[in-house]
């Protein structure tokens, strides 16, 4: 079943149009990856889905309903969760306060569901339980990433939007993050993932959407992607092809 659909969405800032008609759909329970060069419109696509940059034309459908005109807050209340770019946790609030804010719409609907939701998040991320009274800003990069993901999960969303989670993380923290996202994936929550780091992204997603200048130029399951396609659409050359290629072959290996 299709959970999220974009039909010919255009969007931009001021006089600049960044998205020139994005069309894509995300199946329930799957992980969709959005890849592209700087300025291709990856982050704006994410913001058009989340509502912080509203679509100028076209349609955004969530669970079959048109949400194109809804505010970001309303979309969250309907079951969208965010792991924003730069892991924007609230640095001067404690871990628990961050989680309480994450469950804002859940607590408004039914306060009784908060306790069990908190417990289940703590079960999945024991490190957060240990540090529940710590200020979020004083945790390591990997732990903040966990908190950002947990903050989105605790509201029990149907779709999580993850925007460039690996940026600025060291390789070891990236591995930690990958495990966290794997937990989300295993729990069956649908995810849209935007990544600059293609090797990292390809290791997680089921379907890849390749963007160029605000248009989806190629959509394929990861198992059908090859180096040449990536090179054509993303301009990956010799310096980095090794890492991406190995990530790709690792993925294909695991599929088989």
């Amino acid at each position: 079943m299709t959970l999220l659909e974009l039909h010919d969405v255009t969007a931009g800032f001021g006089a600049v149009t960044v998205l020139h008609g994005i069309t894509m759909s995300v199946a329930e329970g799957s992980i969709a990856g959005v890849f592209g060069l700087n300025g291709a419109g990856k982050s704006v696509t994410m913001k058009a889905i989340g509502g912080t940059v509203p679509a100028r034309s076209g349609q955004v459908l969530f669970e079959g309903e048109d949400i194109t005109r809804l505010s970001p807050e309303k979309r969250v209340a309907r079951g969208m969760g965010h792991v924003p770019q730069g892991r924007q946790v609230f640095p001067q609030l404690t871990v628990e306060e961050n989680l309480r804010l994450g469950a804002y719409t859940l607590r408004r609907k039914d306060k009784g569901r908060y306790g069990p939701a908190l417990d289940s998040v703590f079960d999945r991320f024991p490190v957060l339980k240990q540090r529940r009274q710590q200020l979020a800003g004083t945790m390591s990069g990997g732990q903040q990433a966990s908190l950002a993901v947990a903050r989105a999960l605790i509201n029990q969303p149907r779709l999580i939007l993850v925007d460039e989670p690996s940026a600025g993380l060291s390789p070891v923290a990236q591995l930690e993050l990958r495990e966290v996202l794997q937990v989300v994936k295993d729990s069956g929550v649908t995810m849209v993932l935007v990544e600059q780091n293609i090797a990292f992204g390809l290791s997680l997603v089921d379907t890849a959407h390749l963007l160029q200048t605000g248009v989806v130029v190629h959509t394929a399951p990861v198992s059908e992607l090859d180096d040449d396609t990536l090179a054509t659409h993303l301009g990956i050359g010799k310096v980095l092809a090794g890492a991406t290629g190995s990530a790709l072959s690792a993925r294909k290996g695991s599929k088989r």
Partner: peptide, 14 residues
Amino acid sequence: LAASQDAAAVRLVG
């Protein structure tokens, strides 16, 4: 309190 630290992220938690 959260809005004073990161206004954009506040919207994203609903």
